[in-house]
Design a protein around this nucleic acid. Structure first.
Length: 219
DNA sequence: GCGACAG
DNA sequence: ATCTTGTCGC
């Protein structure tokens, strides 16, 4: 694969990003995250929460073969297919998706939240757990003079989360939504619960693997 | 060339 | 992300 073609695709995708609010009142928020099995498979999980109570009302997962390596700036090519797969198979549709990663705060303004948002035409927000790029000025993240992201924390003094709009939402509203979803943990509930979920699926898979090994291996 | 670099 | 014990702080 040629990374330059992917870079160009990201640049083209970023031009399609809508960074203004264009979605109905949020009733359900979705959170997606991934985990891996032996570097061979990727598990994507989706948890849909009631926006008012932040209680989970639905969840599903999808497992696919891993086909792309981890390359900073190209995370979407490793995880987006699995995430979009689980979102498409969901029986309960969220009004907005929170993704583990970035949106517009990205070297080419096209993090995985933007990638998924545009390809599925769904409002999306990126919630990163570690700094990616830009210049931090207080709570703001500036790139080429524009504010592309914001540092948000549930508890002052603790490590922040990096919020940026992915698609069909403004930075201001994205921050507002993420803050609304904070329940005393560093990460907002949608991605936090999605992470817990995929981890449990992973452990369930590993357990099943070991049971089969104990049953068939020793002979 | 050097440094930075989501999950 | 993943591997992995004890340990620091609220």
């Amino acid at each position: 694969m040629d990374v330059h073609e992917l870079y160009n695709e990201q640049i083209e995708l970023s031009k399609k990003a809508i960074l203004t609010d264009s979605f109905p009142p949020i009733k359900r928020v979705g959170g997606v995250d991934c985990s891996y099995l032996d570097d061979k498979f990727i598990i994507a999980g989706l948890v849909v929460l009631d926006y008012g109570t932040l209680k989970p009302i639905y969840r599903t997962f999808d497992i696919q073969r891993l086909t792309f390596p981890y390359i900073p700036g190209l995370l979407a090519y490793r995880e987006a297919e699995a995430m979009m797969g689980v979102i498409k198979k969901a029986k309960v549709r969220p009004d907005l998706i929170m993704v583990d990663g970035f949106g517009t705060n990205h070297p080419r303004r096209c993090g995985i939240a933007t990638h998924i948002g545009i390809k599925l035409d769904v409002p999306a927000i990126g919630v990163g757990k570690s700094f990616l790029c830009g210049e931090v000025q207080g709570q703001r993240i500036i790139q080429d003079g524009e504010e592309t992201g914001r540092l948000v924390r549930a508890i002052s003094g603790q490590k922040p989360v990096y919020v940026s709009p992915g698609h069909k939402i403004s930075l201001k509203t994205a921050v507002k939504v993420v803050k609304h979803c904070m329940a005393g943990h560093r990460q907002p509930e949608p991605t936090r619960q999605a992470h817990e979920y995929v981890t449990s699926i992973k452990n369930r898979s590993l357990l099943r693997e070991n049971l089969n090994r104990a049953k068939n291996g020793p002979r």
